[in-house]
Amino acid sequence: MSVLSIKDVSKIFPNGNVRAVDSFSLDVADGELVCLLGPSGSGKSTLLRMVGGFETPTSGVMTIDGEDITRLPPEKRPTGMVFQSHALWTHMNVFKNLAFGLKLRKVSPDEIKRRVEGVLELVGLGGYGTRGVGQLSGGQQQRVALARSLVLEPKILLLDEPFASLDQHLRERLREEVRDIQQRLKITTLFVTHGQDEALSMADRIVVMRDGRTEQIDRPDVVYREPQTPFVAGFIGTMNLVEGTVSNGIFSRAGYSTPLPVSDGPATLAIRPEALDLAAAEDGGQGKVHRVTDYGTHGLVDLDLRDNTRIKAMVSHPDLFKAGQGVTLKPRAIAAYRDNALIHRA
């Protein structure tokens, strides 16, 4: 059963008439973690802020457990938001930061102490209650921000790029911890990120957004393996997108051709680097190796078609290739798009 339901929500900002979110709909199930993924300006943060009550939709309806929350202010919503910049109150210590919301709800001091200490243990900050916020590291501050939301036991947890200001190592560790905590508490979570790694590793479902609209909503593995639009294909992971023409069931571009059983016309061929095999060619082949990069576990070959279209291929033995060498392309899996829609997958 869906806890959060967003129906046909749009947001138009008055200045410049920008349509930040355009007819967006989504149902989030109980205990599910949904990632809103997209580039800057895709409307994902605006959407999250509308769910949190910090922006009012221009049109559409949002409900939590069937109750209409579209026009409710943030303080009346059963949501908890973790901000990108932590947004901790520096004039309060860690305990007071967490206790503030509970005090406003007139919870008894004993209960406040029990709940704050419990949630601090949960985020691995047991005994940090008396510390000043300024004495904590970036990672610890983000844990306090998470704890501050969790201590109020919200129905929906909203995370707005919470790891953006942290270094790579800390980011990876924290996203595992957040995912563990989310699964342990079974709390419904909406997570905004522009990092595909974060989305792929944490989400139950990913919503890929572009220009305020939904491009695709699916499980991470499906979004990665079966992107429905060339934008999703190009945005998630590395993808070779080759534009060409189809004639009599053959796709061709600058000397490269491959069977593509679709009607004649323009098409965009999508091939993952790991799904593209290369073979050395004696007669010049379909492309020429530009550079070979050895990453230890695998190699990455950059090659150019005859019109200098750059393509990447992942190889297990990079030492077999060298710059200037002619190669033949043998894709193991392809997808083709026309008019922003999938027309073939094999």
């Binding site: 303080e75 938001m81 503030f100 919301g101 921000a145």
Partner: peptide
């Protein structure tokens, strides 16, 4: 964001 965080936890 400090203001929004306070509103988020219920501050009028």
């Amino acid at each position: 964001q400090a203001i929004e965080a306070a509103r988020d936890v219920g501050a009028g």
